[in-house]
Amino acid sequence: MSAEALVVAEGLSRHYPLPRTSLFTRAERVRAVDGVDFTLARGHSLGIVGESGSGKSTLARLVLALEPPSGGRLTLFGEDPATLSAEAMRRLRRHMQIVFQDPFGALDPRHRVARIVAEPLQALRPDLARAERRAQALEVMEQVGLRASDGDKFPHEFSGGQRQRIAIARALITKPDLIVADEPVSALDVSVQAQVLNLMRDLETSHGLTYLLISHDLVVVEYLCAEIMVMYRGRIVERAETERLFAAPAHPYTRLLLASVPRMEAGRARRDGVAPPPAEAETGDAIGDGCPFAPRCPLAEHRCRAEAPRAREIAAGHRVACHLA
């Protein structure tokens, strides 16, 4: 990979204190993101897959510098956000925007659509006149398939799919290089989901975007991303090019995820050769020093419970954190 690195994370962590259970004990910490390393190269959209509690949404907020990391280093467009002045940070923010899952919660119900779409310009391009901001907002709305006349409406006048287009327009308006999309289509109906996925794919080419796509849905990630990282309990357990990951998944958790996706061809009978996946982890079981997946892993050995596996490269660009891979 010789392309420019947009995001570099080295040992990136984010820990939260849990509410204390007693006045006299130390507050427990939950490791939402726990020592994550990755590089996101321009033009090489990256998908982060995981289930609830995997830390994927926290990672998105870390990458956008909306939350400070509790450990490790983050480099965005060659700069460390922790050392930047407010003004330099605003300049940096023009290059990266976000699209959320919930098309209802992501738009302020009291603002008109043109104002919502223009919002990033307001703060990031104060040099632009109001009329110019509005003109740009209407232009980018047309690029995502909305009408310019929609600019004076309120969000509640739109369907879920159209709202997601508004959110995408807002993200596009600063002409960013990187868009972090947190479950962008999971709240949408199937037919609308296809429209939004196609739009995101078109914009990737037409606007030179790179996506950091966060999803629980492997199918969506496969459609949009060149490379996939699988997260489990705050750690990256496997990373590979998309085709490679689907063809030769190496981590037992990745294999479990792939086997669990309900397929249209399947039929009622259980698919051949797939053992029933193990029980979902009980809430709050401690993983201690071992592999986070060991309590659910059908292959776990003594070593897995005692020692956390380090990520190893098992093929070019294919890294797995498993003792047995």
Binding site: L66, Q97, A106, L107, E119, P120, Q122, L124, A167, R170
Partner: peptide, 25 residues
């Protein structure tokens, strides 16, 4: 709410977010 997070991603500080998003709502 997520639109506040979006405003922060758009570079707005707590004073502007309070005036433009929180207070009207």
């Amino acid at each position: 709410r997520e639109f506040v997070l979006a405003a922060r991603a758009a570079g707005k500080g707590p004073v502007r977010i309070t005036a433009e998003h929180v207070l009207p709502n």
